[in-house]
Amino acid sequence: MPNSVAVVTGAARGLGAAVAAHLAEHGWAVAGMDLQPSRTALPLRVDVTDAEALGAAVTRAEGELGPVTGLVTAAGVYEAVPVGEITDAQWERVLRVNLAGTANACAAVVPGMVARGRGAVVTVSSDLGLGGSEGDAHYAASKGAVVGLTRSLAEEVADAGVRVNSVAPGAADTPMIGPDSPWRAAAFLDALPLPRLVRPDEVAAACRFLLEARGAFVGQVLSPNAGATI
């Protein structure tokens, strides 16, 4: 069995697909968990908001690939809505996928890491969870909560040999950002110190760095954001 097994949620497209591909290129056996099939060693179709199904998928991944030593929680949804127009259903959807989905993945994977005394978790938050943005209140709130979850979990399991950190990307060049999005507008990009969108491979590299890093990276947030938040 491979020495390094990773679970990547949201692995079918966007940042999750980039992370899964990057890890595979660097020797990881990846179980991709998504509503859609992913191009991974073990593509499993599962809803991250279903804790029981996600737990069963992790059990299957460990049975087929070996003990999970890395987790990247890249599953997420984004929409821009003015705060006064956000419906209860929209609040629930964003929080269930972005926050509860992250918590479910951690709950499915981390106990095994703790029992073995080894493992690393990288949650995917967002630069908007650090700095906020007009029209993104429910998304920013969900991603800010992911940072809080990350730091709390990091403190909880560090002495068991499990490191938990977060990557909080800025606007990245993925299908999540539509062609007419203000994040693609020249006025926004030209205002950045690095005047372009973040590349998915840059986010993936940050995730792998935190998975593989040795030392005192515990409860930290690494933000590849082209200088949007400094």
Rank of each mutant, 00 (worst) to 15 (best):
A12Q: 00
I230R: 14
A103F: 14
E134H: 11
P175H: 12
P224Q: 11
A191Q: 12
A172Q: 02
G129D: 04
A103R: 12
E202G: 13
A24D: 05
T87W: 09
N165C: 14
G66V: 08
V124I: 15
G132Q: 03
P179A: 14
E92P: 00
G112N: 09
V30T: 06
S126F: 04
I177R: 12
L194Y: 12
G178W: 08
R151H: 03
A185W: 09
M176C: 10
G132F: 07
V122G: 12
A168E: 09
A120Y: 03
D34F: 08
A31R: 05
V48T: 14
P175E: 14
A172T: 15
P111E: 06
G170V: 10
Q220K: 13
L130M: 14
E52Y: 05
L99R: 04
G63A: 13
E52N: 12
V114Y: 00
A80R: 15
A145Y: 04
P200I: 09
V203C: 12
A120M: 09
G215R: 12
I177L: 15
D127Q: 15
L44F: 00
S38E: 03
V5G: 02
S126R: 09
T69Y: 06
G119R: 10
V157S: 02
D50M: 07
A191W: 04
S166Y: 00
D127V: 14
V146N: 03
A216I: 06
G27L: 11
G70D: 08
P2F: 05
T123E: 07
V58D: 09
A145T: 03
V68P: 07
G76R: 07
V48H: 04
L54P: 01
D190C: 03
R13V: 00
S133D: 11
L42G: 08
R196Y: 04
Y78N: 10
V218D: 03
A213K: 01
V46A: 06
G161V: 09
G227C: 09
G161S: 08
P179L: 06
V46K: 07
A11W: 05
E156F: 03
A31D: 07
D136N: 14
A51C: 06
V164K: 07
A115F: 01
G16F: 02
F188V: 15
Q90K: 09
V109F: 07
V203W: 05
V110L: 11
G161E: 05
C106Y: 00
C106T: 12
V162C: 09
T229E: 03
G14W: 02
